[in-house]
Structures are given as C-alpha cells and as structure tokens.
Design a binder for these strands. Structure first.
Length: 931
DNA sequence: ACGCTCACG
DNA sequence: GACGTACGTGAGCGTA
C-alpha cells in the first residue's frame, strides 16, 4: 500500500498554529451549546482543513501531508536568549482549551499530526522539507510566515492560504531583497519585533538586503564591517556583532532534527467517516458536519438540540437564605473542598471587621459552587452577651478553628487549576495576602462588568445583582447599624451572617456565569484579560507596600498653616466689620455682594452667592477682601485635606500610607485613588508642593518618579493622524510653542510666553472637546476672540475636527467609543437632547484619548513587577501618567533604565503608535525632589 | 445627603 | 435661536 517517498511525490506541510490563530481571530466566539465550551477556533480550524482537503486536486495536489504544531512555550531558542518571543501576548483564555481539540480534529481527518516538545513547528517543517527535497520530491509549505521563507528553493515552495498565492524564489526575493539562502542573514540584521529577535538597531530589511548583496553574506559583512562608508551604520555593526550573530542563531531553523517518524508515515489517507462524523457531532457543529457528510456520501449524525446543561439558567434557581449552609467543622469544610475540586472553580467572599483591608481582620469566608448552593464559614464571631450592650469578647460557639480552616483552604486558593471568582477580588486577595495566602488564578465580576458596561452604571454588587439577577441583596445596614452604634461584622449573630454572607458568594457566582460568555459577545475579552484582571495582584502589592509619610513634617506644616489662618481670619473679620465663618461660601458671598456691594456676583442653582476661585481672583484685582479669602481657602485646603488628614492615614504598624485604587471607578479606564487620595497631592503652588516633602524614602533608599511626557497629545496626534504634531514630537520640539507658531504665524525663536500659554490652553481644550465659551473663560478673553482661535486651530489642523466629528458620529451610531486597545466606554447620553448633549459629546471626544493613555500605563504596570524583579525596588504609586518607585540608592540608575523602557514600550505589541512615547525621570529623598 | 469648592492629571 | 459648556477624579466642609 505505502509507496516510498521520492521523485514524483509532493509533500504538503501545514503550519497548524497559524491555522489556529487565524481561525480564532476570524470567527466570533462560538461555544458548544450543551456546556458552553468555547469552540470557535476549532470550528474555523475544521473549516480550513475541510477546504484544504477539498482543494487538494490538480497538478499541485499532495501525495503526503502533515499538520505541524508547536509544543510547549520553551524551546532551545529560549536557552540561547531569554527574551525570545518575550513580547508575545498571553494566549486568550478561551483559546487554551481549544488547542488539544485542534489535534483531535486533525487526527479525525486522518491527517498526520506532529509536534515535538521543545521545538517550534518551524523546525519540524524545516527538517521534513529538507528530507523530502533530498529524496527528490516536491514540498509545499502551507503558511504565510516569513520565518519559513529561508526554506524555499529546489522544489520547495510556500503557499499563502489566505491569498491562495504560491511563493517561490522570486517571491522571497521580492519580500527580502535576497534569495532564500540569504534570508537568515537579512533577518539576523533586521531583527524581528514580533519574535523579539534583536538584530542590529536601526537596520531594517531594506538596509540589511543592501548590505548582504554588497558583501555576499553575513559573515563577510561582519568581518569587513570597517569598510562600510556610512559611519553610523559601520559603528552599529561593529558594536552589535555579538547580538547580530545571536539573532542569526535564533532565526536559523533546525533542518536536521531527529524525528521519530518518516516521510512515508505522512502519506495521504482517506478519513474514516465514522471517526470524523463522531468528532464533529461531539463538537456539535451542524453546518460543517452536514457539508462534510455530503462530500463523503454518508448520512450526517443527529446532533441533539442540546439539553441546557445541569447548570440551570440563573433565574431558574430562586434565592433562598434557608438553603445556605453554615460550615462549622473540618468534616463539613472537606465536603465543600471536594465539590470545589470537582468543579474547578469557586465563588468566594470574605467578611471582615472593616473596609480598610490593611487593618480589617478576617471574620468569615463564604463559598459557592452552584447557584443557590453556598456556605458561610464563620471564624471569629464574638459571643452575644445578655448584660452587655456591646457583646462580649468571648468567641462564639459553633465555629471552626481559624488556623485549621485556613490550612485547609490555602491549597485550594493557591491551586493554579482552580479558578477563584470574586466581586472586587483585590479586597479579598489583600486580606488573604496578609494571612500569607496568594490567591490565584482569579476572575472578578466587578471588572467583567466594567469591561462591558463602563459608562452605563457602577459595578458594585448591589447594582449588578439588581440589574442582572433581578434580585436585591440583603442590605448590610440592618445588620451593622449606623453611626456611633454601628457594630463590626464579628458582632453579627452567626445565623444572620450566614444568610448575608453566603448570598454574596451566590450572587457572585451567578453574575460570573452570566458575564463570562458575554465578554466575547461584547468583544472585550482581551480588555478584561490584559488590562483589568492582571492589575489586581499588581495594585494589591502596591497598596500593601504603601509609601512612607513623615508625620513630623506634616505636623509642623499644619501648625504653620494654623497660625497664618488665624491671622487671616482676624483680618477678614475686621474688613467685614463682623465675625463670620470664612469657610462658608454663603457667608462670604453675602458679605461681598450684599454688604460690600461688589458687582458681578452670580448665584448658584440653590440660590446662594457663588464664590469660586476664578470669580474671587477677578475681584481680587480691585479689592483686598476676596484676595484674603483666597489665601485663607488655600491654607484651609492644604491643612484639612493634606497635612491633617494624611496623618490620620499613617498606618500604625507600617508607618506608611496605604491608599486604595479603584480599578472600576473612572469610566475612561483611569484608576482612582481613595482613603486617602494620593493622586491629588498638591504641586501647582510652591506652598502646596512642599507637602510632597513629607512623602519620603526609607534611609538608604530613593524615591524615583517617572512620568509620560505629553502622553495625551501624543495619542491625539496618533489617533487623529496629525502629521505636524507627529513631526513636532519626533523632532522634540516644544509642542505648545509649535502650535502657537502654526496658529499665529510667529517663528519659534520669537515666541513669547503669553502666546505659548494661549496655545497650550487650546491644546488642552482640544483634548477636552473645546468650546469657544470654555476657552474664553479659561483664557479670560472675549468669546468671539476665543472662537477665532479655535477656528484657526481647525484650519491649521483639519484632522482634529475630523477626529471630533468622527468620534461623535461613531458614538451616536454605536452607543460607545473605543480606545486604541479596544476598551469600550459607553455613551448612553450621546443622543440626548438639551444641555446634556454637549456634555456627552465632549466626554465622547475625550474618552478615547484619556482612555488610551490609561490603557498604556496599565500595560506598563502589569509588566513592571516582572521587569524590576531583580532590583531592590518597589512600585508604590500611580498618578495617571506617572509611576513612583522606592529603590535602594545603588540601583537607581538601573531602575530608571528598566522602568522607562517598560513605560515607553508599553503599547507594544498590541498597538504600533506613530508617535514615540517619552518618559521623564526624577529622583530624590522625597517626592518633592523626585518630581 | 447634597452642594460647593478645590486638589490632581 | 437658545441653552449652557472645557475632560476625568476624591475629599472636606457647610447646610439642609
């Protein structure tokens, strides 16, 4: 039956991984009806195989064929160079389970399916094509991967399955400028950003081909590099010789592997209809099964209209607090752990003594594996006491031992094969981290909702349960009380706690079941998996670390402010000729506009006089009173919000301040910082800026701050495609001065600060969705003049107007806008009538810019811990476009180098920005010096 | 609880 | 033609 492979034979080698990824990205995220298994990529893969089989006729038909796959992520190339393919984004989670199914599919078609641990598919393909060529046969490599082009020639060709185009020697020469035998030389020089092959900096394929053609081959070129005329190019090749040689070994395919099979094993075989139909039926593919059955001339198998799983639809199981179990001993917990291990996932929630996860203690844990079936494990509830209003300090009966419980749960919480599902998992993960338990892997329903529904509503459990489960959760208020008489959760009677706490886990699981498949439908899986979820452990770590704040510095400042304020207050009372509360805008307005008779006062919608800073500033040019009020207000702000309140936030144990970041707070993707907010520490005035002196490094360490320079304007230049802006960033020109020069026809070297200031205001205005009124108010110029500026700006940069119009149009059509990384920000008000409309439009214009910048720094933050792993450095804070680190003095330069690199390249490889990102760095003993 | 004001990017 | 208007946040205070 088998014929010896040789002359007249034609071997087809199919690049299986390329098929899989193309199938995955080409198809919507289908799931198998009966159990929700993701099968979109498998379906696409099967279709491609079938189309291949159907098309395998005529003069180029194969006699032998194999589909070759990659196996394992670590290959001999990683041993040579640990950064090899390090840029690769992680495999999407819904693709992973489909990988083995593509092997099964290949075998079901009765096509040889080959993979070898530690080797890339490319190496196997190289080895097989050499063997086939040496035996005198023809080879067609079905792939469009340029890394395989080195194999072309002597009867070996490639076939791009998308374009159905054959690539021979000429095709390779067209692509690389050299013949197939010199392709690796060109690749070694040009490098490859996709595979992270370094190559020679500044040399691309064009230059590389030029050099190789001139010197013959890479070795001669490197030996004779000194002869190159261009000084920069010459130096690059001399300096990077080792790196270039390494690159060559990385791109050179191994064509002499020992293979545990031979060419003869790859002879084409007909599929066994039973096996193939069986597989297709199991996958529940209806259309393709029917088509293949027709081709094979067999009856298609009956695919049952799926019985909708044992997992009931969310609304099918009513919420019933009676059903929740109280777990009070190891035996009962063991039953739950077994159920969790069977499932592979668990919804979890912790109850604690407070909301501050740096201080709060664990009180109990709830678990849920199936809607309606949840338990609560009380651990440290206090016993009730009849004679004492506040209860006793004795531990209540009917609880399992704290340590025993944690010892049992720890392996589950840390098991990489068990998914832990939570609502706002950062909170629970921090509680567990303090107990030395690293919870992973996780899913977070709050973040899922945020990825899908940002802009529509908030993402708290109450909101989500109401909206998506039509169920109002048991409120916590009646359990804890309010105000002074409020109690902590450990004082809640256990039976009440069970009903409340277990329900939270139940709700979380039901939300997860609903949200998980929706992520695909809404096309935000990647956003969730790369921008939301991975931030949880990163932020948890930063928050737990905190930043050292020097109490004495704050305290001294506070006293100084208090003295000055007392003086100002006396002065103001004298001017008003009566005592009044300077902190009351209503009273200040009364004195100025009623008593003193100042002109130009406006009232707020509540009817009281409005006294914001800009109004007072205008009045201050004529009068002392508003000037003193402004002085007083500034001091009051600094004292109450910063020097006083910050001291309250210094953790007694750590001596540091631990903010909490909300990941799903801001609609645009920005983080928000609370308790305390460390994203609004003063800097704009000298007096306020000194508060940053209180944020200090430990002895021997240094505070380092790195911030993106003009990131939003750079992103605007990219998104709106403004060449003049791009060029200015490329040339490193002062961007506001450039704008001013363009608009007002002033040469750069004659620029005055005043003109530049106006242009700067316009640049920012554009980002915010400019209006003549807003700009006029900001610049304190007549509205007509402001409108003139704007008109002129749009004349000079017509792309900006187009971006604004297009963005609003997109929002009106789709109800959302998007960042470059796919984050969606819903814009439900965009079609509203009336004054709302203006707000919604400007928000829609701003969101993609602000949001893209937020995505960029999120990506940098996700990569940062691994990047600075080897340094004695910690990332402490994020302030929208800035990251703050604490690092041992000796490692400052290393940290700046690495962190800057991560930040500047954060958009790679997902988005290629036309404008480079630039990062400024500062360092010092405290935050004021570092900035 | 809400409005006003003001700190930041 | 009039309406209001820069985008995104959080915190502290006064006032109801």
């Amino acid at each position: 039956m088998t014929t010896k492979f040789g002359k007249g034979c034609h071997l087809h080698l199919i690049d299986g991984s390329a098929f899989i990824f193309r199938a995955y990205h080409a198809l919507p995220p289908l799931t198998r009806k009966s159990d929700g298994l993701p099968v979109g990529a498998v379906s696409g893969f099967v279709n491609m195989l079938q189309r291949y089989v159907e098309g395998n006729t005529g003069p180029d038909a194969a006699t032998h064929v194999a589909v070759i796959f990659d196996k394992g992520s670590h290959t001999f190339r990683n041993d040579l160079y640990d950064q090899y393919k390090a840029n690769r984004e992680a495999m999407p989670e819904d693709l992973r389970p489909q990988i083995p199914l593509t092997r099964t599919a290949t075998k079901a078609f009765n096509i040889a399916c080959e993979e070898i641990e530690g080797f890339e598919a490319d190496d196997i393909i190289a080895t097989l094509s050499h063997q086939a060529r040496d035996a005198g046969g023809r080879v067609t490599i079905v792939s469009s991967d340029k890394d395989l082009m080195q194999l072309v020639g002597d009867g070996v060709e490639m076939l791009d399955p998308m374009k159905n185009k054959r690539i021979d020697r000429d095709g390779v020469a067209e692509k690389f400028g050299v013949g197939p035998d010199r392709v690796v030389d060109v690749q070694a020089l040009a490098g490859d950003s996709v595979d992270n092959v370094p190559g020679a900096p500044g040399i691309g394929i064009k230059t590389a081909a030029l050099l190789i053609n001139e010197y013959g081959d890479l070795e001669s070129l490197l030996d004779r590099a000194g002869e190159i005329k261009q000084p920069k190019r010459r130096q690059t090749l001399i300096d990077h010789r080792a790196q270039i040689e390494l690159s060559k070994t990385l791109v050179q395919l191994d064509c002499a592997m020992d293979l545990p099979f031979g060419l003869d094993d790859l002879e084409i075989r007909d599929a066994d209809p039973d096996v193939l139909m069986g597989f297709l039926a199991e996958m529940e593919f209806r259309t393709v099964t029917k088509r293949i059955a027709e081709k094979l001339g067999v009856a298609p198998p009956v695919i049952e209209a799926a019985p909708v799983a044992e997992v009931a639809a969310p609304e099918a199981v009513p919420f019933d607090p009676e059903k929740y179990e109280c777990v009070a001993d190891a035996a009962a917990l063991d039953v739950w752990i077994t159920r969790i291990r069977e499932r592979g996932y668990v919804a979890i929630d912790t109850e604690t003594t407070g909301l501050n996860e740096m201080i709060a203690d664990l009180v109990g844990i709830s678990l849920c594996v199936e809607p309606g079936q949840a338990c609560y494990i009380p651990l440290t509830h206090k016993a009730a006491s009849s004679d004492d209003l506040f209860g006793s300090d004795d531990i209540a009966a009917g609880q399992m031992d704290f340590e025993t419980c944690l010892a049992m749960l720890k392996p589950v919480l840390q098991d990489p094969a068990i998914l832990k599902i939570g609502q706002n998992m950062k909170y629970d993960a921090k509680i567990f981290a303090r107990l030395d338990i690293a919870v992973a892997p996780i899913d977070d329903t709050m973040l899922m909702s945020y990825a899908m529904n940002a802009g529509l509503h908030n993402h708290g459990m109450d909101t989500l349960s109401d909206r998506y489960l039509a169920h109002t959760p048991i409120p916590i208020k009646p359990l804890l009380g309010t105000g002074k008489s409020a109690i902590t959760f450990d004082r809640v009677p256990i039976e009440k706690a069970v009903a409340y706490a277990a329900e939270d886990a139940d709700i979380t699981l039901r939300l997860w079941q609903q949200f998980k498949p929706q992520l695909h439908v809404k096309r935000v899986t990647t956003v969730y998996e790369t921008l939301e979820r991975p931030l949880v452990p990163v932020l948890a770590q930063m928050e737990r670390h905190g930043i050292k704040v020097d109490r004495d510095t704050l305290s001294r400042m506070s006293n100084a402010f208090a003295q000055k304020m007392a003086g100002l207050e006396a002065e103001l009372h004298e001017m008003a000729e009566r005592p009044f509360n300077v902190q009351s805008p209503a009273q200040v307005g009364e004195i100025m506009f009623d008593q003193m008779g100042f002109e130009g006062g406006k009232k707020t919608k509540t009817g009281q006089w409005s006294t914001p800073a800009d109004v007072l500033e205008d009045l201050a040019t004529e009068h002392d009173f508003p000037a003193r009020v402004l002085d007083y207000r500034q001091l009051q702000k600094l004292k109450s919000t910063y020097t006083d309140a910050l001291q309250e936030h210094i953790n007694a144990e750590t001596g540091r301040v631990h903010t909490s970041y909300s990941i799903a707070g801001a609609n645009t993707g920005r983080l928000a910082s609370t308790d305390p907010n460390l994203q609004n520490i003063p800097i704009r005035t000298e007096e306020g800026r000194r508060i940053r002196e209180a944020f200090v490094a430990e002895p021997g360490k240094v505070i380092v701050a790195l911030d993106y320079s003009q990131i939003e304007l750079r992103i605007l230049a990219h998104i709106a495609g403004i060449d003049a802006l791009k060029q200015a960033f490329l040339d490193g020109i002062d961007i506001h001065a450039m704008t001013a020069s363009e608009m007002f026809d002033v040469p750069l070297d004659e620029m005055t600060p005043e003109v530049r200031r106006q242009a700067k205001a316009i640049n920012f205005g554009v980002i915010y969705g400019i209006s003549g009124f807003g700009l006029a108010r900001n610049l304190r110029i007549p509205r007509g003049e402001a409108q003139g500026f704007i008109d002129r700006y749009f004349e000079r940069f017509p792309g900006i107007r187009k971006y604004m119009d297009d963005t609003v149009g997109f929002a009106k059509e789709h109800g959302y806008v998007q960042t470059l990384f796919g984050r969606k920000i819903n814009t439900p008000e965009i079609n509203a009538k009336g004054p709302h409309a203006g707000f919604a439009k400007r928000a829609a214009i701003n969101a993609p810019i602000q949001g893209t910048a937020a995505d960029v720094i999120r990506r940098a933050m996700v990569r940062m811990p691994a990047a600075i792993d080897t340094l004695p450095a910690k990332m402490l804070l994020q302030v929208h476009d800035e990251l703050i680190f604490e690092v041992e003095a000796a490692a400052v330069d290393d940290l700046i180098g690495i962190a800057r690199d991560v930040m500047e390249n954060a958009s790679d490889p997902a988005v290629k920005l036309d404008v480079k990102l630039a990062v400024d760095a500062g360092q010092g003993a405290n935050w004021a010096e570092a900035h």
